[in-house]
Amino acid sequence: MIRIRFHGRGGHGVKTASRILGTAAFLAGFETQDSPVYGAERRGAAVTAFARISETPIRERGMIAQPDLIVLADDTLLNDPAAGVLVGQETASAIFLNAADPAPLVAQYHIAPPARAFDVTARTRELLGRPSALSAGVASAAAKLCGCITEANLEAAVREEFSHLAVSPDAVTKNVEIALSVFAALEPAVLSDVPRAATAEMARVPYVDPVLGASTVYNSGNAEQRHTGAWRVERPVIDAGLCTRCGLCFVECPDGAMSLDATGLPLVDYDHCKGCMICSHVCPVDAITHQPETAAW
């Protein structure tokens, strides 16, 4: 069995990518499963999806803790421990990185499995002319690494999955083109069946006082510990020289990810700013500019 785990952000299309791979494997005659982690899936937030491909019936379900392939759509997720990109990398035979050159990432994040790379974002931008969902390219990379899926299966799967989305025929053709170029550029991974750890110690769960026996949070306002700044795809940058201290951006920030200094100058809390860019839009003097935060789109 090949277990594939996709990582991306809401909007990247990793759920669609897992479906394209699932459909391609299905068309190739394999037993297959695909599924997303279903949660509060928000644009920019980390999203994980899974696929399994096998010649025999699949007796696994749900999350994949020990993948054979890790497919990463956005390398900024490596900074977000909660995204868990490298969890179980010990068993992985390969990792796919959406980048022109994997070497710096491999070194910086101590990536253990052999890395394969392709700049899907660049290719997507080249063909579609704008940053967009990466599903076709990312699915294609996974399909090629699996080594058991033909170009024809892949193309049919891309067409099939895109037919469920409200996209124009032209966009479908371009996505097929992206998929095929990624497919041609990569080599199949050398898949080795690393034995999976089978024994874990069991816990005995005791009775605990009702204070911690119900889902009550006493640490009010502790959501600040969650750094939603990792969701950001664009960064608002305030030009203090232009700013008139009108306070509008501060008022309209949904998340309260801004504060005002003593002079009334707004400061962005980049640990939490989700990059919605409302502040930039409401600024009467255009003092807030957009800076790209991630190369993934």
Partner: peptide, 15 residues
């Protein structure tokens, strides 16, 4: 209301 909630970026309800 502190930042760090999982609601969508740009949510008008949260504002």
């Amino acid at each position: 209301v502190t930042p760090g909630s999982p609601l969508c970026a740009g949510c008008g309800g949260l504002t």
